[in-house]
Design a protein around this nucleic acid. Structure first.
Lengths: 135, 135
DNA sequence: TAAGGTAATTACCTTTAGGTAAGCACATTG
DNA sequence: CAATGTGCTTACCTAAAGGTAATTACCTTA
C-alpha cells in the first residue's frame, strides 16, 4: 500500500488525519472554549509530550484548522485559536465525545450488575434481540 | 504513560478505540447498510488485510458493537451486523464522513484557484479575518 | 482426487506514532 | 550573574498498528 493512494479523495481517510491522533481531539476541543497558549495546552492535557503538541499544532496550522498568533512581548506569548474552518470540526467532535460519554456510562452500568457478570447480561441482551442466533 | 490509565473514564479515549483505527470507520459504515460476510468486507475495503479485518471484527464483537452470526451450511457463511449499540455509532460516523467530504471539496476548490497558489488565497483569507496578526 | 471457496490463524517484518530527555534562544526577575 | 519561564527543536528509543504471505480446516464441485 503506497500510504498516499488511499488518502487522496477518501473522506474517511481525510477526516482521520485530524481526528485519529491520540491528542488531536483533545487539543481541538480545548481550543473550542478559548484561545490557548502552548503551556496552557501542555498543562491541560495529562501526559502529552511537547514534541507531539508542537507537531500537532504545526499540522493543524498548515491545514488551516488552527491559527497561531505570536505576541512579541516578554515573556514570550503565543496563542493558538481555531480558524473558521477549525470550528466546523466542533460539532463532529461534540458527537464523538457525547458518544464516548454515553457509552462509558452504559459500560459502567453493565459492570455494576455483576452478580453473575456475563451470563445475566447476556440473557438480558438476548431478550432485547428478537432474532435468534443459529450458531 | 501506563497505556491504560488515560483510557479509563475518558470519553475521548474511549471513543477513539472504535474510531481511530485505519479501517474501523469504513467497516462500521459498510455494516450500516447491510449485514455482511467476511469476504464482502474484504472485497469492499480496498487494501485491508485479512489479519486486520479479523482483528477489528473480533474487537467489535467483544465490545458489543457487532454481532456475528455463523450459518452452519456450506460453503461456510458468517454474517456480521451492527448491534443496537453499534447503530448508535452511525450518526457519529455520518458527521465524520460528512466533514471529510465537505473539507475535501473545499481543499480541491482552493487548489484549483492556483494562479498564484498561496499568496492569492492567503489574501482572501486575510480579508475574511477581521483581527490582524501582530507577528 | 484435485481445485476452489470461505473464514480464519500465525509468524515475521516494516512503518508510524508517540514518549524521553536534553538543549536552545530569548527575556525577566531576584 | 544565576535562575526561571516560554516555546520550541532534536536525537534516540519503544510500542503499537498494520502489511505479507504461508498455512489450516472444512466443504463442494468438476
Amino acid at each position: 500500500m503506497s500510504s498516499e493512494a488511499l488518502y487522496v479523495g477518501c473522506p474517511v481517510q481525510h477526516a482521520r488525519q485530524f481526528l485519529s491522533g491520540k491528542w488531536q481531539i483533545a487539543i481541538i476541543w480545548h481550543l473550542k472554549t478559548q484561545p490557548s497558549r502552548f503551556v496552557d495546552l501542555r498543562n491541560i492535557l495529562p501526559g502529552i509530550s511537547e514534541k507531539v503538541l508542537t507537531q500537532e499544532l504545526r499540522f493543524f496550522e498548515e491545514s488551516g484548522i488552527v491559527q497561531k498568533e505570536v505576541f512579541v512581548c516578554s515573556p514570550a506569548k503565543v496563542e493558538y485559536r481555531l480558524t473558521t474552518q477549525g470550528l466546523t470540526l466542533i460539532p463532529v467532535i461534540q458527537h464523538i465525545i457525547q458518544w464516548g460519554y454515553t457509552n462509558l456510562q452504559e459500560e459502567k452500568a453493565k459492570r455494576s450488575m455483576s452478580s453473575t457478570p456475563t451470563s445475566v447480561i447476556d440473557e438480558l441482551e438476548a431478550m432485547q434481540v428478537p432474532e435468534r442466533n443459529q450458531e
